[in-house]
Design a protein around this nucleic acid. Structure first.
Length: 826
RNA sequence: GCCGCGGUGGUGGAAUGGUAUACACGCAGGACUUAAAAUCCUGUGAUCGAAUAGAUCGUGAGCGUUCGAGUCGCUCCCGCGGCACCA
């Protein structure tokens, strides 16, 4: 009786053997042992934050998919860089450490040990010699060094800023870290505003390049769109409206050609005009002034987030002033309302209630006129009633009731309005962005110390390069202070230092960098991870960068991916790099949810631990299952039953190789031609599918092949080929069979990928026959005759199912050789 | 509201404009077994039908292009994700 499939018996052995033989070392010798190394292929998966919970089956999915790619490229003779590291700074690590009452400096390495062990168990082919950890001084030394480069080029500056502040984490946050409902993406606490001195990164300086360069990237469309939306470039016009009986002008930003539908102006409570009214620089009726002051004070009490989220009920006060809409030739009343936000646009809105939802609500509430200036469905130009909702959806439709703009579509109308206003001097074209500068300070312990010293005489002075790294002190108490100062501020022997410039007493910056800092450049460090002279050498970068394949979750669509792109562009400007985009291809992985269709979570008790799955079924089963269940970028719900299907498949493969009756030494004797043809098709399919990350169909094709193979014999050479295409998915079993059963020398993972035979020649092919587009039968035809239309028709007409539909009728034949025959009657 | 992605059997899902439902799970029947598990074999879109005869319908809905549409175009409906009092 043949040996039973027992993965436990050999998986551990191969983990050790691969490490010993340095099978996955970068760069590898070419597959098949040839002399030259192939083209480089940098295959990178987003490195994890090593949490205490250990590896999740979701991690296993994204790492395995990336690993399959890396293994595939290696076997195809490419020079592969496939590294792994740890993104260990940041709030989650720090909060976990506080909970565990352990310093994160001690806790993080413990977590890393667990993660690494689990990754090795899954059979991931990383070159561990290149491992990096963002929290180690050897690494963050260079993060600090980069900070100073950015500071020196003027991209970083410190300024008092009204920032988003998380009262739970007691730290400032960037806009990108706040969810739409005004809560912190990490802890879910409601964000408040606080004014603090902050290090600010001028990412907006790169807005245009960050936007333009998206065009050249092979990234998922959705992610590109999210970045475009986040950068939020808008071309429009700042229209000037003189305020009657004053010297004032209100400037309104607009992207819509709707001057002829404009019936009011609304300014934000913070607007200059309101300040001037309140301090009597503009004279208005004292009663109105009183109302405005009351309204202003009420608005100030609300936080911005309250103002935005508290409901859509419009409030407001008429200022008593009128402004002139010179394009339309009429005056409009000026109102103040808190639905207009001071720092958005110009803090003033030209109200066109016919075609804007908010303006409509406002006009309805205060009984202001509503004019249609964009046609509705079927060219509808009728007036808009007060009770109606907004008629025009989005920026579609033709402009109407607008004199010289009539009949133009929306975009043309805007162009013409802009030309007209500029010509008359009533406004000018402007470009605005949604992107804001990046708040780079965190008032927390667990981050890279910002390498700056404040001297009373010299101001901010960077720590000299030779004094880097500025090490994070090992302390007992690192809990957030809540005062807006980092806990580092309380460590006086660390804070107090000398000014690098004048040598007088000075103080260190006590804020730390945000958790994104380390991940902005880690992919560069992998190219040269051991370099202690510089952050990277030019040769190493030239050899490996940019990243060819970057794989990870869609949750990083904006934050990490935008920040990294920004750093790379800045580093290019510093001439430290000579490319402008870090990640040429981006692919997303779908999340793994629990069997009950909920998120896997301790509190639901539905978490699947990869260790348990490996203990029961082996790592290969886990890998094959996760690759097979759905397309790589789709969400999957865990299914223990389906997992067993993957196990069954592998077991059947094992049995085929361990049963001499299914494999013969040489191809002459009992070989089954059809089986060999099927194998060639399978090789072709898997070869095509892997670089498209269509792992599910690759595995399905291999399953099909195994279904055909069972009960037949396959020549040994062909059996080796099949094992090779299985190897990226089930590396343990493939290696065990390769070396122990087939007695091959060296690792299968360094063997050459099989080539499918040029043309697959089947002797006989089946051609479907349709009559009037409906399938009525099939005919078998010799492959050599497949181009012969008359023969195909002749055969088709003999088929019972076809005959009765065509009999006695004239027909036209459409024949696609080897594909289909369609007979169209009458 | 805007932007993006989807909608195919009982389930996860396949399908360069060319035999829709590959592959897998589940289910049903059978073999092996004292029995169960495991394994193997057969069947499995719906409706009509005794039928493993045949027919009709069938990829969210409806039109259209085409010899032929899950796939292309138009008009909608629904679900998911992102953004948003953004002017």
């Amino acid at each position: 009786m043949a040996k039973k499939y027992q993965p436990k018996e050999f998986e551990k052995k191969w983990i050790e053997e691969w490490e010993k033989e340095k099978v996955y070392k970068t760069p590898l010798r070419p597959a098949g042992g040839g002399a030259t190394l192939g083209v480089k292929e940098y295959v990178l998966v987003m490195f994890p934050y090593p949490s205490g919970a250990g590896l999740h089956v979701g991690h296993v999915r994204v790492y395995t998919g990336t690993d399959v790619l890396a293994r595939y490229f290696r076997m195809n003779g490419k020079s592969v860089l496939h590294p792994m590291g740890w993104d260990a700074f940041g709030l989650p690590a720090e909060n976990a450490a506080i909970k565990a009452k352990k310093n994160p400096i001690d806790l993080v390495p413990e977590h890393i040990v667990t993660f690494k062990r689990q990754m090795q168990q899954v059979g991931l082919s990383y070159d561990w010699d290149r491992e990096v950890t963002t929290t180690e001084p050897e690494y963050y030394k260079w993060t600090q060094w980069l900070f100073i480069r950015f500071y020196k080029m003027g991209l970083l500056y410190k300024k008092n800023t009204l920032i988003n502040f998380c009262p739970f984490c007691k730290t400032g946050l960037s806009d990108e870290e706040i969810l739409a409902d005004g809560t912190h993406e990490r802890c879910g606490a409601k964000i408040t505003k606080k004014e603090l001195p902050q290090w600010i990164f001028k990412i907006t300086k790169y807005a245009d390049r960050l936007l333009k360069d998206l065009d050249g990237l092979d990234w998922p469309r959705g992610i590109l769109e999210m970045q475009r939306n986040w950068i939020g470039k808008k071309e429009g016009i700042n229209m000037e409206y003189p305020v009657k009986n004053t010297d004032e002008t209100i400037i309104c930003f607009t992207t819509a050609p709707v001057n002829f539908g404009m019936t009011f102006i609304v300014v934000a409570p913070e607007h200059e005009l309101i300040k001037k009214i309140m301090n009597k620089k503009i004279s208005v009726d004292p009663k109105i002034r009183k109302n405005i002051i009351a309204y202003y004070e009420k608005a100030q009490k609300k936080s911005e987030i309250e103002r935005e989220t508290e409901g859509k009920e419009k409030t407001g006060v008429f200022t008593g002033l009128y402004a002139t809409n010179r394009i339309a030739g009429w005056d409009v009343p000026v109102w103040v309302s808190d639905f207009v936000i001071g720092h958005v646009g110009t803090g003033a809105v030209q109200g066109c209630p016919g075609h804007d939802y908010k303006d409509f609500e406002f006009a309805k509430k205060f009984k202001l006129p509503i004019i249609r200036v964009v046609e509705g469905k079927n060219g509808d130009k009728s007036p808009i009633e007060q009770k109606e909702q907004v008629i025009v959806k989005g920026m579609k439709g033709k402009v109407c009731n607008s004199k010289f703009l009539n009949g133009l579509d929306f975009a043309e109308g805007l162009e013409k309005t802009m030309d007209y206003a500029e010509e008359k001097g009533w406004g000018r074209r402007v470009v605005t962005y949604h992107l804001r500068d990046w708040i780079f300070s965190r008032q927390r312990y667990w981050g890279e110390p910002i390498p700056m010293v404040y001297c009373k005489k010299d101001g901010w002075v960077p720590v000299p390069d030779e004094e880097l790294p500025v090490k994070l002190p090992y302390v007992k108490s690192y809990e957030p202070t809540g005062t807006g100062e980092s806990p580092l501020a309380t460590i006086s022997n660390w804070v107090n230092t000398k000014c690098p410039k004048c040598g007088k007493p000075a103080k260190r910056e006590t804020d730390t960098m945000p958790n994104w800092a380390g991940s902005c450049w880690y992919f560069l460090r992998f190219a040269d991870s051991k370099n202690n002279q510089e952050a990277w050498s030019r040769e190493a970068i030239k050899k490996w960068l940019p990243v060819d394949w970057y794989i990870g979750g869609a949750e990083h669509a904006v934050l990490h991916l935008l920040y990294s792109r920004f750093w790379i562009k800045a580093l290019q400007d510093l001439k430290l790099l000579n490319f402008s985009e870090p990640f040429l291809r981006l692919r997303n992985v779908g999340i793994v949810i629990a069997q009950d269709s909920r998120k896997m979570s301790k509190s639901f008790g539905n978490v699947i631990n990869p260790d348990d799955v490996i203990a029961e079924f082996g790592a290969d089963t886990l890998r094959v299952y996760e690759m097979f269940m759905a397309p790589f970028n789709s969400e999957i719900a865990w299914s223990t039953k389906a997992l067993q299907g993957a196990y069954r498949f592998l077991k059947r493969v094992w049995d085929l190789y361990n049963n001499s009756e299914f494999i013969i030494e040489n191809s002459a004797a009992n070989e089954d031609k059809k089986l060999v043809v099927k194998l060639q098709k399978t090789i072709r399919k898997v070869t095509d599918d892997i670089p498209q990350m269509k792992f599910n169909t690759s595995i399905a094709a291999m399953m099909e092949f195994v279904n055909v193979w069972e009960g037949k014999t396959l020549p040994k050479e062909e059996a080796k080929q099949f094992l090779k295409i299985l190897a990226p998915f089930a590396p343990f079993m493939a290696e065990e069979i390769w070396r122990e059963v087939l007695q091959e020398k060296g690792s299968i993972h360094l063997s050459a990928w099989p080539k499918a035979v040029g043309e697959i020649v089947e002797e006989e092919i089946t051609i479907p026959v349709q009559v009037n587009g409906k399938l009525r039968g099939t005919v078998k035809i010799q492959n050599s005759e497949s181009k012969n239309q008359n023969l195909a028709i002749e055969k088709a007409l003999k088929a019972e199912g076809v005959k009765k539909y065509v009999a006695g009728k004239g027909y036209k034949a459409i024949y696609i050789p080897g594909k289909i025959l369609n007979l169209v009657t009458g």
